[in-house]
C-alpha cells in the first residue's frame, strides 16, 4: 500500500495557478524524487500533502487516509525555509521539537546524544543555534526531522548547505532510512543526487506532471542511438553512418544517422582494429532530460 497518494491536485492563489493537475504515489521503502524548476509547484504540493494548505480539488492520502494530528508524530519534515529557534541552545531546541513530535524525555535522552554524535554536533550542543554555521544548522534540523523515527520523511533540498563530506553523510542516512522500509520524499534540484539516490521520481513544471516513474526507466525512455567511446588511439576516419562526432573530454560522443544501431558502430570499430577501453549507449543524464522537459522539447506520454 502506498504511503502517500496524490490524485489530481489543484491549487490556486488568486490568479496564480500553483498546481494544476498533479498525481503520484510514494511507496514504503523507496526514496522518491519530487523535481521541478523554481516555482513549478513542488513546495505547494508538499504543503498540501502535509495539510498546511488545502487543495482546491483532488485527493490526498498519507499513511492510509487524510492527515490527522496523530499522524504528525509519524512524519518528519525538513522544509525549504530552514528554521530553528535561534536564541536557545541547540540541545534545548532539539529536545523541544522532539517533544512536540510525541517523544518523552527518556526517549529523547536515549536518541539525541547518538544523533548529535552521528552529525558531528556533540561539541556544539550547548551553543546557541545562531552561533552555528548554516551547514551545522541544517544538520541540526535534520536531527529534528529524524529523531522521532518517522514513517514518512519529506525533505526539501537536503544537500543545499552541505559540504561533500556532510552530503555523503546525509545520503548514507537517507539510504539507511530506505533500508528500514521508511518512505522518503526528496525535493531537489541536484539531479546527480536524484540519479544516485532515488528509486522513482516525478517532475513537475508549471503545476503539471511532466515525467513520472522509475529513475532508470525514465532515463532509458530517452535513450537514443548515440554512443560514448573511449579508445586507445585515434578514432578511425572511415566510420560509416556517423552524422556527428563530439569530443567530450575523456569520451567521444558518436551521433549516428537514423537507423544506424550501436552494434553497427561497435562492429566497425572492431573491424578497424581499434583498441576499445569503453563503449556504451549514451543514456541521457537527468540534468539533460530535466532541461529538455522544462524547455518543452519533450513531454512524458
Amino acid at each position: 500500500m502506498p504511503s502517500i497518494t496524490v490524485e489530481h491536485l489543484k491549487k490556486t492563489f488568486g490568479a496564480t495557478k500553483a498546481v494544476q493537475d498533479v498525481s503520484f504515489e510514494v511507496r514504503p521503502g523507496e526514496i522518491f524524487g519530487l523535481l521541478g524548476p523554481n516555482g513549478s509547484g513542488k513546495t505547494t504540493t508538499i504543503r498540501m500533502i502535509l495539510d498546511i494548505y488545502k487543495p482546491d480539488s483532488g485527493e490526498i492520502a498519507i499513511l492510509d487516509g487524510p492527515m490527522t494530528e496523530e499522524k504528525k508524530n509519524r512524519i518528519g519534515y525538513l522544509p525549504e525555509e530552514r528554521g530553528l529557534y535561534q536564541d536557545i541552545p541547540v540541545e534545548t531546541c532539539l529536545e523541544y521539537l522532539a517533544e512536540l513530535k510525541g517523544l518523552d524525555k527518556a526517549a529523547i535522552a536515549e536518541r539525541l546524544p547518538g544523533l548529535l554524535e552521528e552529525f558531528d554536533l556533540t561539541v556544539h550542543r550547548k551553543k546557541k543555534v545562531k552561533e552555528l554555521s548554516k551547514g551545522m544548522q541544517q544538520k541540526a534540523q535534520l536531527i529534528a526531522t529524524l529523531i522521532h523515527e518517522p514513517d514518512v520523511i519529506i525533505i526539501d533540498e537536503p544537500f543545499a548547505a552541505l559540504d561533500p563530506v556532510n552530503t555523503q553523510l546525509v545520503k548514507d542516512i537517507l539510504m539507511a532510512q530506505r533500508a528500514k522500509n521508511k518512505t522518503v520524499v526528496m525535493s531537489t534540484h541536484q539531479m546527480n543526487q536524484v540519479e544516485q539516490l532515488c528509486d522513482r521520481m516525478v517532475l513537475i513544471n508549471k503545476g503539471e506532471v511532466m515525467l513520472y516513474g522509475g529513475v532508470n526507466e525514465i532515463r532509458n525512455r530517452y535513450v537514443t542511438n548515440e554512443v560514448l567511446v573511449n579508445l586507445d588511439g585515434e578514432l578511425p576516419q572511415n566510420l560509416n553512418g556517423i552524422r556527428e562526432i563530439r569530443d567530450e573530454g575523456t569520451v567521444t560522443r558518436l551521433i549516428p544517422e537514423e537507423g544506424v544501431e550501436s552494434q553497427d558502430i561497435l562492429a566497425q570499430l572492431m573491424a578497424n582494429g581499434s583498441k576499445i577501453n569503453s563503449f556504451e549507449k549514451a543514456v541521457p543524464s537527468l540534468d539533460e532530460i530535466f532541461i529538455r522537459v522544462v524547455k518543452g522539447e519533450v513531454h512524458d506520454e
Binding site: 498546511i52 494530528e69 522544509p79 525555509e81 528554521g83 513530535k101
Partner: peptide, 16 residues
C-alpha cells in the same frame, strides 16, 4: 519570532 526564525512550517507539522 516564529516568522523571523522561519519555524512556522516545522511547528505547524508538529502541532495544530
Amino acid at each position: 519570532e516564529e516568522k523571523e526564525n522561519r519555524t512556522m512550517e516545522v511547528m505547524i507539522t508538529s502541532v495544530s
